[in-house]
């Protein structure tokens, strides 16, 4: 009796304990740091209360990073979902099942590429003088095309690479979801005078609502972790035009100033914002 009851704990407790240590010790350490004034240049530090947090709100670079992060989330999540739904429906309507499978295989390639590799490939493709992406512009006008060094375009260019990796992958998921739907409601809609776009707008996509919401949340979480992509392609530049929160925290903590505590307070704010925003969205969607 005792053995039966204790067996699950034997397996679960050590695992959960390790995971909790790995997750909560750094978290607690970061929170602790954010209330101190530690830098990488001095060994001693002391508690300063909320000073770091108060200072953040008068730091224009922090506010910019907040704004860039918000833009990054909205652009990448929206673009990925729209492209995926469009491509998924297009494949579903125009290709035979066999052709669809071949396309799905091709569409999976970008996401299989490590993000750092994708970033390097595309940074070179965007190169003003040698890039294949900028080649047509050069050929026609004879001028180099500056994309990654243009503050108005850089964020869009990086977002485009994110879309290239994830849009195709999500299109594969959506076409498979469409294939798994029962055929009869679609056939009934055809008999009900619904045109092709109406079938998807009124029948199939609403039937996939829960799955689409889940995909959106997954993409939102994924977009939060785009540090490597942005780091390789622009390092937050030109200027601070692609500097997201994690980029700025990283450069404050390790690159420019070594202000570990200041960077930690940013990380804590990012964590809180993420938790709050995701909770609100989740509640909204379920209601």
């Amino acid at each position: 009796m005792f053995r039966q009851k204790s067996l699950p704990y034997v397996f679960l407790v050590p695992t959960i304990l390790i995971l909790m240590i790995l997750a909560f010790v750094p978290l607690g350490y970061a929170i602790n740091l954010s209330f101190r004034n530690m830098t990488l240049f001095r060994p001693d530090s002391s508690y300063v209360g909320f000073e770091n947090f108060v200072n953040l709100w008068s730091d224009r670079r922090f506010l910019n990073a907040l704004w860039v992060s918000a833009k990054w989330q909205v652009i990448t999540v929206t673009a990925t979902m729209l492209a995926a739904v469009f491509l998924g429906v297009l494949m579903f309507e125009t290709l035979s099942p066999r052709q669809r499978n071949i396309m799905c295989l091709i569409f999976l390639v970008p996401v299989l590429l490590p993000r750092v590799c994708a970033a390097f490939v595309w940074r070179f493709a965007f190169h003003p003088l040698y890039g294949i992406f900028t080649y047509p512009y050069r050929a026609i006008t004879g001028e180099p095309l500056e994309i990654l060094s243009n503050p108005n375009l850089a964020l869009w260019a990086v977002a485009y690479v994110d879309l290239w990796q994830w849009g195709f992958f999500f299109a594969v998921i959506i076409v498979k979801l469409l294939e798994a739907l029962p055929h009869q409601p679609i056939e009934a809609a055809r008999l009900d005078h619904a045109r092709t776009w109406e079938i998807h707008a009124y029948i199939t996509l609403p039937m996939l609502r829960a799955q689409l919401v889940a995909l959106t949340l997954i993409k939102a979480i994924e977009s939060l972790r785009s540090f490597d992509l942005i780091y390789v392609m622009t390092r937050g530049g030109p200027g601070i035009s692609t500097e997201t929160l994690d980029m700025y925290a990283f450069s404050q903590g390790f690159i420019e100033a070594g202000r570990i505590s200041y960077a930690s307070s940013m990380a804590v704010i990012m964590l809180l914002l993420t938790i709050i925003i995701f909770t609100i969205i989740w509640k909204r969607v379920r209601a």
């Binding site: 009869q184 409601p185 056939e187 009934a188 809609a189 055809r190 008999l191 005078h193 009124y202 609403p206």
Partner: peptide, 28 residues
Amino acid sequence: PGDRGIAMVFQNYALYPHMTIRENIAFG
């Protein structure tokens, strides 16, 4: 199918699961 002047009743009803009964009936 919509232009043939026909209406069909399916074995598994084929109702639109996310719509109310009224919306189902009025969809066409």
